[in-house]
């Protein structure tokens, strides 16, 4: 595919957003937002409620069309032109803020369904569980620690386990870029730290964008941080850096 829109920076990016704006009934949820993520990078996004973090994920994944702005995936694919399923199949996985697993399917079935490929109706009808797929599921299971709940309904899992299952489903998709909205919500401190470890592990193979309010979690991620406020970037840099930013303290941390 040809270069849809021009980039304003030189270095390669897995995600490039420039001047992205979205308004709902006149209210600007995203206001000329610009943000780049380099291939293999893990990025934490923080910001007060209503800053536009979830909306940003919505525009990247094709759920919401931006009013204006450029969003490029791998420097070439103009994500504003595709819908959710297409964006997902290009290699962008997303975890929702509210855990969303398929509650009436088992953990196994949830994972099986997430495995890359076989998205057409016909393929789904004639799908067979191969050894390779089984291995992949086993591999994911050991990462998300749900081996012993394999054949239980996902609905019976604890909140934190659902979060993990959803992360596991992301991994099944084998995406290049993972967008993760508030993964630590509802987790115990121990689970939170385990999740941070998991993400650090994942960042060796994937690019990640993690939205979170939990500062200990962000600290554990030990990565570059972007602060969103009123739909645009307020500050960016290391956590220590951002924490000392006067504006950030005023609108977010100080409250």
């Amino acid at each position: 595919m040809s270069l849809a829109k021009t980039k304003h920076i030189e270095q390669p990016t897995v995600l490039y957003m420039d001047g992205v704006s979205v308004s709902f009934d006149g209210f600007k949820a995203l206001n000329s937002l610009s943000l780049f993520i380099e291939p293999g990078e893990m990025r934490a996004i923080i910001g007060p409620n209503g800053a536009g973090k979830t909306t940003m994920m919505d525009v990247i994944t094709g759920k919401t069309r931006p009013d204006e702005g450029t969003i490029l995936f791998n420097d070439e694919l103009d994500l504003t032109r595709y819908d959710e399923a297409q964006v997902a199949n290009m290699g962008v996985g997303r975890k929702f803020q509210k855990p969303s697993v398929i509650e009436s399917l088992t953990v196994f079935e949830n994972l099986e369904m997430s495995l890359k490929g076989g998205r057409s109706v016909w393929q789904a009808l004639t799908h067979k569980l191969t050894g390779a797929k089984q291995d992949k599921i086993d591999e994911i299971l050991s990462m998300i620690d749900l081996k012993d709940r394999l054949y239980e309904d996902a609905g019976s899992l604890s909140h934190g386990q659902k979060q993990w299952l959803e992360i596991g489903m992301l991994l099944g998709q084998e995406p290049e870029l993972l967008l993760i909205d508030e993964p630590a919500a509802g987790m115990t401190d121990e689970e939170t730290m385990k999740t941070a470890e998991l993400f650090k592990e994942l960042s060796k193979k994937h690019s990640l964008m993690v939205v979170e309010h939990d500062m200990d979690f962000i600290e554990a991620l030990d990565c570059r941080v972007t602060v969103l406020h009123e739909g645009s970037v307020l500050a960016e840099g290391s956590l220590a850096n951002v924490k000392n930013n006067q504006q950030v303290i005023e609108v977010y941390l100080g409250r």
């Binding site: 929702f96 697993v101 399917l105 998709q173």
Partner: peptide
């Protein structure tokens, strides 16, 4: 159960 989840899984 969750139409949007299915979409974001690429279906």
């Amino acid at each position: 159960d969750s139409e949007s989840r299915a979409r974001f899984l690429g279906y």
